[in-house]
């Protein structure tokens, strides 16, 4: 009988933990595991190019189950293509809804133009009807409340949520919702209402301590915002319910030196409450009127600082956003713009694929009608959905391919012709080390609580 040969998966990445342990990750299976210093040489030997033959030891058998070792008859290219095709399943849907396109802030780096206010009644009816009509075929629905500033249209969110909750209850659909908000109107009372509508994840931006934040993220017409947002967050912390708040810190040359003192402050206020998590990103030239004047960081500095700040926060008791771990899972970094069953619904019923190019004609992919039907230009949808790995040999050879499928940011590829790679992929060793560190800290914390 021919002996079986096992080869290292082409989708593996490895890193080293602070205590010398080996960390392994596979972007097709999503598995992440660590190995003791004793196990490490055995595992490293099996992961050599020629792999390993015959009966597997107790140490190596789990590597097959986790996808780190694959049979020499496995077509890993086909696996990636199949994973990509699985995004076409019709029982999941992700809608990004803009209950208003107005905003009470005028952030220096914002790319939006705030063309209109609250979603019109006939479009609200269209959203309700569209989701109700989809009810029979859906197993999973997720809604992202976006804008503008969605909390300016709190009543619209309530009206739509009540209808959506009826539909998902009637059809037994798993439903999750999240919100990107500036946090200014996120009072504890309204927060409780949002939780009752199943909105449980919030992205809220604070760009440093008061003087730094208020100089970049101020009210339309001027006016500070830091104290109000932080006051809301402190009040929300006292609510004994499950939720996740991602505190996003946008950094550039102006506030680079203030991020760590700010993380010290956040650690004092929210440290060791796992519901509050950090998400650090460099400011980009995202299409706003101040783009040319923004003091953005050199990309090499930015790509290093993201993880330096994330680790600094971790050392202050602030976990990193769960977005980061989910971004390295299979299909986890595919942008919604590249997913066939994802649409952005504007306040006037205009349909888009991308949230960063509202004024581009190629992003105007259709209209939502009051009766719940979508009038869609499928050629434009195809333009967003069919790019990516299948035309890019670099992506096809990449260890991260199953996670992003070459579609991390279709807009970047359209505008520059270059390959869009994620911050996580570029520093995968750092990211794996931080995931290990966060897991280890959590386990230590749980052990302390038990004893």
């Amino acid at each position: 009988m021919e002996t079986k040969r096992w080869l290292p998966s082409r989708y593996n990445a490895m890193s080293q933990a602070d205590n010398g342990e080996l960390i392994l990750y596979n972007s097709y299976s999503g598995a992440i595991a660590s190995f003791t210093v004793d196990e490490k040489p055995i595992v490293m030997s099996a992961l050599k190019r020629d792999g390993v033959s015959g009966e597997l030891s107790e140490t190596l058998q789990p590597l097959v189950e986790s996808g780190f070792l694959v049979g020499d008859d496995v077509d890993e290219d086909a696996r990636a293509r199949f994973l990509h095709q699985s995004l076409h399943r019709t029982d999941t849907m992700h809608l990004i809804v803009m209950p208003t396109e107005a905003c009470n802030f005028r952030c220096t780096y914002c790319y939006q133009t705030f063309p209109q206010g609250n979603m019109k009644p006939e479009i609200r009816e269209g959203v309700k009807q569209f989701i109700a009509q989809k009810g029979n075929s859906l197993q999973h629905l997720s809604i992202s409340w976006f804008g503008g500033e969605p909390m300016l249209a709190f009543d619209v969110i309530g009206e739509l949520s009540e209808s959506i909750l009826d539909t998902v209850a009637e059809h037994n659909i798993s439903y999750s919702a999240e919100m990107t908000t500036n946090g200014y109107y996120l009072t504890p009372d309204k927060f409780r209402s949002l939780l009752s509508w199943n909105v449980r994840r919030f992205m809220i931006t604070l760009d440093g301590m008061k003087e730094f934040h208020d100089s970049r993220r101020f009210l339309a017409g001027g006016g500070e915002t830091f104290d109000t947002i932080v006051g809301n967050l402190k009040a929300i912390k006292e609510i004994d319910e499950e939720f996740e708040i991602y505190i996003r810190i946008n950094f550039d040359e102006d506030n680079l030196g203030n991020v760590q003192p700010f993380l010290d402050y956040l650690g004092e206020q929210f440290g060791h409450d796992t519901r509050f998590q950090t998400f650090c990103r460099p400011v980009g030239r995202w299409g706003g009127e101040n783009d040319e004047d923004l003091p953005i960081c050199d990309h090499r500095v930015a790509e290093t600082k993201i993880w330096e700040f994330t680790e600094y926060g971790l050392d202050k008791g602030l976990g990193m956003s769960s977005i980061i771990e989910s971004a390295i899972m299979p299909s986890g970094s595919v942008c919604y713009a590249a997913k066939p069953h994802s649409f952005v619904i504007g306040a006037d019923g205009q349909l888009y694929k991308c949230t960063c190019s509202f004024n581009e004609e190629f992003n105007h992919v259709g209209h939502l009608l009051p009766d719940g039907t979508m009038d869609i230009d499928y050629d434009k949808v195809a333009f967003w959905v069919t790019g990516g790995e299948d035309k890019d040999t670099g992506c096809q050879a990449c260890f991260f391919r199953p996670a992003c499928q070459g579609n991390h940011c279709p807009l970047y590829r359209i505008r520059t012709g270059k390959r869009p790679c994620t911050f996580e992929k570029k520093k995968i060793k750092q990211v794996l080390r931080l995931i290990w560190k966060q897991n280890t800290k959590l386990e230590d914390l749980e052990a302390i609580e038990r004893s």
Partner: peptide, 14 residues
């Protein structure tokens, strides 16, 4: 081997 994140199928992944 200590599992930090278990393997998932393509179906679960989406």
């Amino acid at each position: 081997m200590r599992v930090l994140k278990p393997a998932v199928s393509p179906q679960q992944a989406t």
